[in-house]
Amino acid sequence: MIDVRSLRRLGTSMRDGLRGLRQAPLVFLMSVSTMAAGLLMLSAYLLVVQNMRTVLETAGADLTLVAFLTPGEPDEAVVADLAARFGGIDSVDSVTFVSRERALSRLREDLGSEATILEDMRENPLPASFEIQLIPEARTPEGVRRVASRLAEADGVDDVRYGEAWVEGYARVLRALEWIGAGFGGCLMLVLAVIVAGTVRLAVYARSDEIQIQRLVGAGGLFVRLPFYLEGALQGATGAGTALLLLWLAFSSALPSAGEAVQLLLGRAAPSFFGVTEIIALILLGAGLGVGGSVLSLVYIEESP
């Protein structure tokens, strides 16, 4: 039943919540600090994972699969056939044929002044190959592996190469980090909710006389609970905001001096902070934890005076 009176009641109830907060600012501050510390760990972790994911995506972008043909000069019909076949695979974006001569001249370019070592060779030792680029959506370790096996099945293909070793290793590390993060984040969130529950419990005790009287003159359950939900939400949101601020300060001040370590981790990808969506999501997460904690502490609130 939403009417003017209910809305006014809502307003009064919220004001009571803020009053409770003013009455015990120290308890509130302590709870916010704990919350901030916990969420700082969590968001730092998330930031690392986010950046590593970016690396994987960037790496995927210049990922090329190379299908080497069986040694010897390939038959033109076979080349045309393979080109059509590879081009027909779903996630393949482009197929480029690299003839043996082309491969040799590239090698010569790459070697530069060292190219003289090629002079001694009587014949071109390099096989012909196809270079295959994938559409962006398919540039994942799984996507690459799937296409690679399709390429390898084709007659006339000797071997398929791609940056498998490091891409897969990196992806595996990232996946592990994500799992560890999920487990550790879950525990952390539970702990934080319990901490908020404790603070709210204190606030409930501090206001128990008031609650009793409100009940006696006809306050409904929501009217009594709402101030505490509000207090929990405020604690959580403030904690999350503080955590993000600290993380951002650390991010922007420590990054230049930690260049090498970061480069080792990220390669050429530029480190980035959370976007607006992630920031809003984290603050909502904090508020949600706060409300969760309040709910937890109000489960046993007495119904009758």
């Binding site: 009417d3 009176r5 006014r8 009641r9 009064t12 006809g218 306050a219």
Partner: peptide, 10 residues
């Protein structure tokens, strides 16, 4: 005032 607040008075 608490009585009236809970009754939702202005």
């Amino acid at each position: 005032a608490v009585t009236l607040e809970i009754a939702g008075a202005s």
